[in-house]
Every structure is written in C-alpha cells, then in structure tokens.
Amino acid sequence: MKAMRKRHSLLDAIIDAVFSRPDTVAYPFGELQLPEGYRGAIVINPENCTGCGLCVRDCPTGALKLEKKSRDEFKLIHYPARCAYCSQCESSCVRGAIGHSNALVGATDRPRELIVVLKDKKEGED
C-alpha cells in the first residue's frame, strides 16, 4: 500500500534482506568472530609475575587468589567462573604480566576447568 511508494519501506527492507547473507550464525557449527581486543580468558606471562598481589587486591570479584608462603614460593590462582572479565587486573599489574587473550570462555561442567593455576612458583626456581 503506502509502504510501497516510499523508498525506505519495509517491503524494500525485506527484499533487501532476502538477497543478503543472513546475520545469524548456526552456532555451534558456524564460525564465531571475535575482535582483536576481545576480553577473553585470563592468561599470564609467568616470567614477569613476581607475586606482588596488586592484581589480587584490585580484582572486584575475588576471582584471583595468591597463596604466598614466602618471597620465593607462591601460587597465583584464577577462578574463571567468578571472573567478570573486566580487565582490572591487567590495568593494576605494573609488570604487564597478567592480561586477556581473546579466547571465548564458555560455561563448563568440568570442575578441573574452574580452577586455573596461573603461576606456581617453587622455592629455588627463578
């Protein structure tokens, strides 16, 4: 009716849509495109981490835990299910040790994946 007269009408939009590629992805079969800087899984560069605990202090959700026995023996643990992927740890770490990769973290039913030991430093190692 009136919709046909105007250039930007719904009918045009529909015809346009039929001849363009669908926007949805048949997940989990389709391909998932995440941008470069997507805030995904927390990763660490173990060489740089000194166990200072700055990231643990600023983490808003308590997803990071530092078990410190001595200056040379500590364990940095991350609990992905608690993490809000907010990148606060990345900003807090003065050594640039911790950060995001752009891997998507999904839900999991394997308890093993709920605790990630980022760094486990023993006495005597450097």
């Binding site: 849509a17 926007d23 941008p35 800087g37 805030r39 907010c86 990148s87 995001h100």
Partner: peptide
C-alpha cells in the same frame, strides 16, 4: 530484527575498541 541488526553495528564498534559488547570497562 532489522533494527537489532543495525544495533549490532554499534555494538561491533564498541566491542572492537573496548573488548566488550555491553560491559565495556
């Protein structure tokens, strides 16, 4: 559906520069 398709462009921009679709941090 069509407006949400357009909205996806805005979200793409924000995701591209901040790393998150809605919680941009």
């Amino acid at each position: 559906m069509h407006t949400w398709h357009d909205r996806e462009l805005a979200l793409d921009i924000m995701e591209g520069i901040s790393g998150g679709r809605v919680s941009h941090a």
